[in-house]
């Protein structure tokens, strides 16, 4: 990526982060929603014992996936509300740079809620989690976030030109996130259980990396056509 492309990317990421820092709308809503969803899941699962390690990974990642839908739904919303969407689209910035900027911002938003949700999930559901296991889950989050952020950014860009955008996003994104949730929950379970199962964990991480790579390739190949205006 050339120096000017790098500058454009930094400017776009800074714009979105500054907007979020001023309004604190998206991340706050995502974090609160994730917290509420986690509590609801706990009661819905119906497990009342102290140690719910067996379902902890599933609850944490189902919660993060639902919160991601909320964050993805907010993508492009400030531009639309301030009526500057067409201004952004006619700016001499390659579409690919716009996509990468959206992916980075979504990745950071997800990381921000995981800093809250994952430790809380461990406190709520897991007995005697090892620091090593928690560090491995942090690594897993980094890969899983990419596998969520890329399809999120691609599908959000299509939904912005659709009627009933808020309804379209969950219908489009959640089926695509099922493989990511399955692998991330499996990986979390592998290291938060009574013993760290490293081989199993690495297998799940590899699958998440494949998911992220496939979504990146599809987004790279098609994104120019999404914002072809």
């Amino acid at each position: 990526m050339s120096a000017s492309r790098g500058r454009q990317l930094r400017a776009l990421v800074r714009k979105d982060l500054q907007l979020e820092a001023r309004t604190r709308e998206t991340v706050t809503a995502m974090a609160l929603f994730a917290l509420v969803a986690m509590v609801v899941f706990q009661f819905a699962v119906g497990q009342r014992s102290d140690d719910a390690t067996g379902v902890a990974g599933g609850i944490i990642w189902a919660t993060i996936a639902l919160a991601a839908v909320l964050g993805v739904g907010r993508t492009w919303v400030p531009e639309r509300e301030q009526r500057v969407l067409h201004g952004v689209l006619v700016a001499p910035v390659p579409r690919l740079v716009m996509l990468i900027a959206r992916v980075i911002v979504l990745w950071l938003f997800l990381l921000a809620i995981e800093v809250l949700i994952v430790p809380l999930g461990v406190v709520f559901f897991v007995h005697d989690a090892s620091p090593e296991g928690l560090a491995l889950v942090a690594g897993l989050c980094a890969v899983a976030n990419l596998a969520i952020a890329v399809p999120g950014a691609l599908l959000a860009s299509m939904s912005v030109f659709s009627r009933a955008r808020e309804l379209v996003i969950p219908v489009l994104l959640l089926p695509a996130l099922v493989p990511v949730v399955i692998a991330a929950a499996g990986g979390t379970h592998a290291v938060l259980g009574p013993e760290v199962q490293m081989a199993e964990f690495l297998g799940y991480c590899r699958f998440l990396a494949v998911c992220a790579a496939v979504f990146c390739l599809v987004a790279y190949a098609t994104f120019d056509h999404v914002l072809d205006d």
């Binding site: 990511v180 399955i182 699958f207 979504f215 098609t222 056509h225």
Partner: peptide, 18 residues
């Protein structure tokens, strides 16, 4: 067209994840 490409790429991932 974009979604048809995206969904078909996600099919093997869904199969493998299950």
């Amino acid at each position: 067209a974009v979604y048809a490409v995206f969904a078909f790429a996600a099919v093997p991932l869904s199969f493998y994840s299950v």
